[in-house]
């Protein structure tokens, strides 16, 4: 049981890891790195919103905390990038726990929880925009100093591997959770809280664990964004865009499924780029494509891309039960 589900993960990781050997175009590699960063944020969202059913609309709070804490430690205190990243991820997890404690203890669910997380993210955005030590509206610019110890690389491929490494950790953590007691309890909470309580599930502690791990993963995405673009401001780090990206990718890929975020992120951004190529320079055409994809997914494939694939495969072999189905 515990080894189940790792093969497809390995396959996806292998393809992406070998990509820089086949493609050298910086445009493509840039695209892949960016999508991997989105994937990480989305993996965090998927754990809480997909597996646990607690849809957050404010994962920017964790992304931004990761980015800002790391940036401030490096820019203001000259701390090593790797150490700063570790501290920043811990800070993101702490913010997750605090937001979770405040909202879950109050019994907030569904759209109420979504709205409260949105409010937290917005408050953080406004604070970061106003405060002095965050650089205010001007944001924080990192010093360009390429080197492994500064987590800065000239080669796009090196950064791709770094991001892929973190995505791999995210995938393995997600799969381990899916195969574990914690995962089963989290799914039970999503499906029916009352029944879960009756079976001895401590609902509050399960939710808190989920939001903490979720926030940590999304904070990693924030740190990577910083290391890649070397600049953040409040509207990037705590902006609504990342909250939306983090929740769209799992919805499109397959909510609650381990590979959902990565499949969704590549599908969405792949289609976005493709529509840009096809439609030429119509401004915002990729966003319009997002909207169309989202409407199609919600209307025709509520299980996302993976759910759709599974449905098609079931139609061709209706009796056999696949390994992934139970994984």
């Amino acid at each position: 049981m515990t080894r189940r589900g790792y093969l497809p993960i390995l396959l996806v990781l292998a393809v992406l890891a070998l990509l820089p050997f086949a493609v050298t175009s910086n445009v493509v590699l840039n695209f892949v790195v960016f999508v991997l960063i989105i994937t990480l944020a989305a993996q965090g969202w998927n754990l809480l919103g997909g597996v646990g059913g607690q849809s957050s609309f404010g994962h920017a709070a964790f992304f931004g905390t990761g980015a800002y804490v790391s940036a401030i430690l490096q820019v203001r205190f000259g701390i090593n990038a790797w150490v700063a990243t570790a501290v920043a991820v811990a800070a993101g997890a702490a913010v997750g726990w605090i937001i979770g404690f405040l909202s879950f203890r109050a019994g907030l669910r569904g759209s109420y929880f979504a709205l409260v997380t949105l409010a937290f993210a917005e408050v953080l955005r406004i604070l970061a925009n106003a405060a002095g030590f965050t650089g205010g509206a001007a944001g924080l610019l990192m010093k360009l100093d390429v080197g492994f110890w500064n987590m800065q690389f000239t080669s796009r491929a090196a950064f791709l591997w770094l991001a892929l490494g973190f995505v791999a950790v995210g995938l393995i953590v997600s799969q381990m959770i899916a195969n574990s007691r914690f995962g089963a309890q989290l799914v039970a909470v999503r499906e029916n809280e009352e029944a879960a309580r009756a079976l001895g599930v401590d609902v509050l502690s399960v939710k808190l664990k989920a939001i903490t791990v979720s926030a940590a993963l999304t904070a990693v995405a924030g740190c990577l964004y910083l290391q890649y673009f070397l600049y953040i401001d409040a509207n990037i780090a705590y902006g609504l865009w990342i909250s939306v990206e983090a929740l769209l990718a799992p919805m499109v890929g397959g909510r609650g499924l381990v590979l959902g975020p990565i499949i969704g992120a590549f599908t969405l951004h792949g289609l976005g780029e493709a529509s840009k190529l096809l439609a030429g320079r119509v401004p915002g055409i990729d966003l319009a494509a997002y909207g169309a994809v989202l409407i199609l997914v919600v209307a025709f494939a509520p299980g996302g891309v993976l759910g759709l694939l599974r449905k098609l495969r079931f139609r061709s072999q209706p009796v056999a039960k696949t390994a992934e189905e139970t994984a």
Partner: peptide
């Protein structure tokens, strides 16, 4: 009855067994 509707029978009962 309050089944975990999205799960199969084995997974439903396993939530209890995990206690």
């Amino acid at each position: 009855v309050q089944p975990f509707a999205g799960l199969d029978v084995r997974e439903n009962i396993a939530v209890g067994a995990y206690l």
